[in-house]
């Protein structure tokens, strides 16, 4: 696909997202409030003598801040729409577009991630300033490589989990409740409630940990975790499992699909 096409799809996505400017701004304000709520909760707990194992107070505050920004990158995706498209039959129209469906979703997702990440930087800056937090402090080349790999791994793992859930739409008639339940699971097991290694090292090796915990931990503690190669290897193993599950579900689902299109 030529660069011009990528750019046009990304640009049209941006125009679509910001078509209702006030709604867009209010939705971003809502996200900012979300960040404030979780940050204040931990700030209050730390102020009243609660401390997390393996984390200093600064690192704990940093963890939740970075976890929010990482979430803005990894969790920004349009792939959730596929389920409804399958149920309504509209997905058959996408098969006829003069562009491959997965390329279209990839370019939408990249645009989505770039927009959300850029905006989240504005949320982040006042916190960094007031609480003297310094991400990327003491980062070496290896730490940067691990960080970038964990981001890519997290994005791909999340995308394939989302795709697996959306493939269920070939067999279900509604998707909203599945999404609701999954998001509750994810918020707990991906480390958005607390750093997973402060509770159990076993949780840190679950596939959900790669969606948020590992990149956030790296930014908060500015040091490579022990057994970092093993962590990446387990992450790629999960990714492979999800990829194979998704392709199997998608292929059998497509054979069953009988949508009438738009």
């Amino acid at each position: 696909m030529s660069w011009k096409r990528w750019w046009l799809i990304g640009y049209s996505f941006f125009k679509e997202e910001t078509a209702f400017q006030l709604s867009f701004l209010v939705s971003k304000l809502r996200e900012f409030i979300n960040l404030i709520v979780i940050f204040l909760l931990w700030y209050a707990l730390l102020k009243h003598n609660f401390h997390l194992k393996n984390y200093t107070n600064q690192q704990t505050l940093g963890y939740f801040l970075y976890s929010f920004v990482i979430g803005q990158i990894i969790l920004s995706t349009r792939l959730w729409r596929i389920g409804d498209m399958i149920i309504s039959g509209n997905i058959s129209a996408l098969f006829l577009y003069p562009i491959k469906m997965w390329q279209l979703f990839l370019s939408w997702d990249i645009a989505h991630k770039v927009i959300n990440f850029t905006i989240s930087l504005f949320y982040l800056l006042p916190f960094l300033f007031f609480f003297h937090l310094t991400p990327f402090q003491h980062f070496t080349l290896t730490t940067y490589i691990f960080f970038i790999l964990s981001l890519i791994l997290g994005s791909l793992t999340y995308s394939f989990i989302v795709l697996i859930f959306n493939s269920l739409a070939f067999y279900l008639t509604e998707m909203w409740s599945v999404i609701f339940l999954f998001n509750i699971f994810l918020s707990f097991f991906s480390g958005q409630f607390f750093p997973l290694d402060a509770v159990s090292s076993l949780l840190a090796f679950s596939p959900f940990a790669y969606v948020n915990f590992w990149p956030s931990r790296l930014l908060a503690r500015s040091e490579l975790p022990p057994h970092s190669i093993l962590i990446l290897a387990v992450g790629f193993f999960w990714l492979l499992i999800f990829f194979l599950t998704f392709t199997a579900l998608w292929r059998t689902g497509l054979k069953k699909f009988s949508g009438w299109g738009e």
Partner: peptide, 17 residues
């Protein structure tokens, strides 16, 4: 009913978490 069940489970799970 399946959607209803999943939604209710989600609400209870959030409470438990």
């Amino acid at each position: 009913p399946l959607s209803a069940l999943l939604f209710i489970s989600g609400k209870l799970l959030r409470f438990v978490f």
